[in-house]
Structure formats: structure tokens, C-alpha cells
């Protein structure tokens, strides 16, 4: 209850912050189109299911950026809804807040959690020079519903993921198209993103998982690609599987980005064949 109230306050604070930011900050868009990428399901700037080394928004050196985002995934027995806010400064630091809700169509009810994220660019650049853009980040996750996670063997209702990401774009890669690749190494105890709690009866220590994305810009505005995300497997009641997706991203302007994807989440909580559609909308200020 305490946590819930705290999260609500932070949420209100962020919303107050964003309306302020909208009035005072505008057109801080020194980065090139699409180099802010989009917003992942955990609120961090990235692809769809993988956080990237890129910082969200188009804020370059000395500039502020704000993005708001909504994600929605609809697979066989579940629906995932995410809303997030993301602040960036200096093309260097990213602070994010996301709320996730997983609707359990077949089982009934829902699972919710809040995610507080921080990411810092350490070195390198996505576009220029030889060195990839290198970033480290964390995602602190707090369950808002813990009955089901506890019942299936989760050990904790909160947890923190730590990750390292490297991203690089090739302006004229194969087929003379611009390509972008990202690799993320994550240390995590989260079951199904954390929606099923943290740690489990089978394993209660951190696992290192690999996550990767590869995309090709067909032209300046359209990006097609694939993503893969390894998952830990901590709960005895059902095996947790890796996730993957193929996506199409559209960047008509620096203000808006839209992504649609086909996701394959394998089996979740023992329910097989969780494939379906994913959509994400991001607005940048």
C-alpha cells in the first residue's frame, strides 16, 4: 500500500513535470531522425522488447528531451499494456517511469508493476566514429499485484535489473541501406519482466541474459527488423521461454514514432503459443 501510494505520487509528479516541460522546452531536437529509437515495454529507450544504448528523444548535447509512450501487445491468452514517460538530457542521461498491466484473459484478473529506469551513455556514438554507443542502465521494478506471483513461487515483490548495451548504426551497410544493431547484456531476477515477481523456488539468484536487435532502414522513415530476448527461468510451476519479434517502425517526423510487430512469446505461465500483435506509439517533445 505504501509502495502503491509512493508510485502514484511519483506518477503525478512526472505528469506535472511533463506539462511544465512542454511549456518551457521545445524543438530541442539536435539528433538525426530515428536516432532516438523508440520506447521499449519497460519504459527505457530502445526497440520493442529490448532496451538500447541509445537515449530516448532527440535531445543532443546540452538539450532536454521528453517522450511519452504507449505500448500494447495482444497475444493468445494475455494482453500487455504499458504507458511510460521518459526524460533525457545531453544525449547522455535517460530517466524513465513505466506502468505495466498484464491482462490475464484466460485465468482472469491482471498483474501490474511500476518500473523506474535510469540509463547513462558512457562512451561512443550511434552514428559517428568507429566506437559503438555504450551505455549502462538499471530498471527498478515494483509489483503492484503480488498474490499470484507469491502463489506460484516468486521470492520477492520488487527487483532491480542491471544492463549494459552497445548500439551501432551503419549509414551505408549491406544493400547500401542504413542498418542499426544493438546488444544488451542484462542481470535479472525478474519472472516474465517482473510481472510474476522476482526470484523463484527453482532459482533465486541473478541470471545474465542476452538481448539483441537488428534493423534496416528501407529509407529515412521506415525501419524493419528483428529482436530476441533471452529470459531467466526461476519458477518451478512453468518454464519461462525466450521472446522474439519482427517489427516495422515508422518515423514520419521527430515528434512521432509508430511501431507494429509480430511477437512470439512462446509459452507463458504454462499457456502455450503466445503469438500476436504489438503496437507502440511514441511522442517526443
Amino acid at each position: 500500500m505504501m509502495i502503491n501510494a509512493f508510485a502514484k505520487q511519483v506518477g503525478i509528479g512526472l505528469i506535472a513535470g511533463i506539462s511544465l516541460a512542454c511549456q518551457t522546452v521545445y524543438a530541442d531536437d539536435g539528433k538525426l531522425l530515428a536516432t532516438g529509437a523508440v520506447t521499449s515495454i519497460e519504459g527505457s529507450g530502445g526497440g520493442g522488447i529490448v532496451p538500447w544504448a541509445t537515449t530516448a528523444s532527440y535531445a543532443e548535447e546540452g538539450e532536454w528531451g521528453v517522450t511519452v509512450n504507449a505500448n500494447f501487445a495482444d497475444v493468445e491468452d494475455f494482453q500487455l499494456g504499458v504507458q511510460s514517460l521518459n526524460f533525457t538530457y545531453d544525449n547522455r542521461v535517460e530517466v524513465s517511469f513505466a506502468q505495466q498491466r498484464l491482462g490475464l484473459n484466460t485465468i482472469g484478473g491482471d498483474l501490474k508493476q511500476d518500473i523506474f529506469g535510469v540509463k547513462v551513455r558512457l562512451a561512443g556514438d550511434l552514428v559517428y566514429g568507429d566506437m559503438p554507443q555504450l551505455s549502462v542502465g538499471l530498471q527498478h521494478k515494483r509489483n503492484q499485484t503480488y498474490g499470484l506471483p507469491a502463489a506460484v513461487g516468486a521470492q520477492d515483490d520488487s527487483g532491480t535489473d542491471f544492463y549494459f548495451s552497445a548500439a551501432k548504426a551503419w549509414l551505408a551497410g549491406p544493400l547500401d541501406r542504413t542498418w542499426v544493431a544493438n546488444y544488451t547484456l542484462r542481470a535479472t531476477k525478474a519472472n516474465q519482466l517482473g510481472l510474476l515477481g522476482f526470484g523463484g523456488d527453482k532459482n533465486d539468484s541473478y541470471d545474465y541474459v542476452s538481448e539483441a536487435s537488428l534493423g534496416m532502414f528501407v529509407n529515412r522513415y521506415w525501419l524493419v527488423g528483428v529482436e530476441y530476448r533471452q529470459k531467466p527461468d526461476n519458477l518451478g510451476f512453468a518454464k519461462e521461454y525466450d521472446w522474439r519479434d519482427v517489427f516495422v517502425g515508422w518515423f514520419p517526423t521527430k515528434s512521432v514514432a509508430l511501431v507494429v510487430a509480430y511477437v512470439d512469446l512462446k509459452s507463458i505461465a504454462g499457456l502455450p503459443d503466445q503469438t500476436g500483435a504489438y503496437a507502440s506509439l511514441q511522442v517526443s517533445f
Binding site: V127, Y128, G129, W170, L171, A172, L175, D176, R177, T178, V218, N219, R220
Partner: peptide, 17 residues
């Protein structure tokens, strides 16, 4: 064409530093 655009951008991007 996009392919030629990308090749020229790639060549000029090397001067960033």
C-alpha cells in the same frame, strides 16, 4: 536514390571528428 544518399552520407560522416 537512397543507396547513393547513404554512400555519400557515410563518406562525409567520417569528417565528424
Amino acid at each position: 536514390p537512397v543507396s547513393a544518399q547513404n554512400q555519400l552520407l557515410d563518406i562525409l560522416a567520417d569528417f565528424h571528428g
